[in-house]
Design a protein around this nucleic acid. Structure first.
Lengths: 181, 181
DNA sequence: TAGGGTTGTGCGCTATAACGTACAATGCGC
DNA sequence: GCGCATTGTACGTTATAGCGCACAACCCTA
């Protein structure tokens, strides 16, 4: 068993735990057998490219996320879920939702200290966030990601996620691209 | 043989060609047998994670660089037509292509008068364009669309399309979102 | 407590990854 | 032209990836 195999085993185990999936559920979602998933997670097997691809698609992550460790973002205080400024959000629709092109483009501005939470959209929705000004923190995949102006982040938006302006002085503006399945 | 296998085959072949390595040389550098390298490049075999790791290390590329299909690379590198101002383009990748999240985010700048044409991508690809500065014309669905700063346009990119900076004085900058099926 | 369902693991079988070897084709130098 | 080295491919062998199935352990409900 190689080092990468062991590292990958841990990574796969984390991905499943984050989603609260059983091996059975994961097998259904990925198309890889339950027995094989177990072997991989225990580091007993080195999956092929085809299997890796299935895993990536099933878990809804990119290869880089699948193989490489989760970026160690700044650990945010998750306790402050409720804020008095939840409505401090201005949304301007640039491209409205379109059935045929299944995308949506929004220009969003959050006031200083503002927080916006979402329980998640329907299954398969993906969001891209590009910070246009200020500093923004994005909560996705169970952790906070801090983004400065010009930086971007992308995640599955069919799970709970949130946006927070860390600054107490100036608003944060970001471009929000929503991609529907 | 799966799609990802085929795409990976092309990628590996390109990596080797870029270095002007023979299979023998590549085998020495990666520790993967010559026969196996040949099989993988011809798409006859789906390499395991351990082998993939060896390839990444041997070719001196990051794991995500190794895996991500070259076909899904930069929009601007693909099927380029030769125009008198074709090189007057600067592309910055904000979010590289990702198989699981099937999106790509680019920051593109075209010099005054610059034109960029594309024959179109594979079936189902959608593009969103948001002009950040200057004036841009986008050719899609058999007609030109003129966009000013802050304006956006969206179209199916599996057909021929083009970008043109109408100004002779200043560059145009736009955000290019590519959504893959 | 008993019964049913879920969960993760182990086992044996089949398909294939990975290899070393042989070889045809090609290129180069004499 | 000949001999040698290189190149990529095909083949057969071994190890293992991937699977379906069985099962022990656990959990929940009546």
């Amino acid at each position: 068993m190689s080092d990468i195999q062991q590292q990958f085993a841990a990574r796969l185990k984390t991905l499943r735990a984050q989603r609260h999936w059983s091996l059975d559920k994961a097998a259904t979602e990925t198309g890889v057998s339950k027995a094989m998933l177990g072997q991989i997670e225990r580091g007993e097997s080195s999956p092929t490219l085809t299997t890796l691809w299935r895993l990536a698609k099933g878990y809804g992550v990119g290869f880089s996320t699948l193989i490489e460790p989760i970026e160690q973002g700044l650990e945010m205080d998750k306790a402050a879920r409720v804020t008095p400024r939840d409505s401090a959000l201005a949304v301007k629709t640039i491209l409205p939702f379109d059935v045929g092109l299944h995308t949506e483009l929004l220009d969003v501005e959050i006031e200083p200290g503002g927080l916006r939470e979402s329980d998640g959209h329907r299954r398969g929705v993906i969001e891209c966030v590009l910070v246009q000004s200020g500093e923004l923190s994005v909560f996705s995949d169970d952790q906070w990601h801090r983004l400065r102006t010009g930086e971007a982040h992308r995640f599955r938006a069919d799970q709970s996620h949130a946006y927070r302006n860390e600054s107490q002085d100036e608003p944060a503006r970001f471009l929000n691209v929503l991609v529907y399945p």
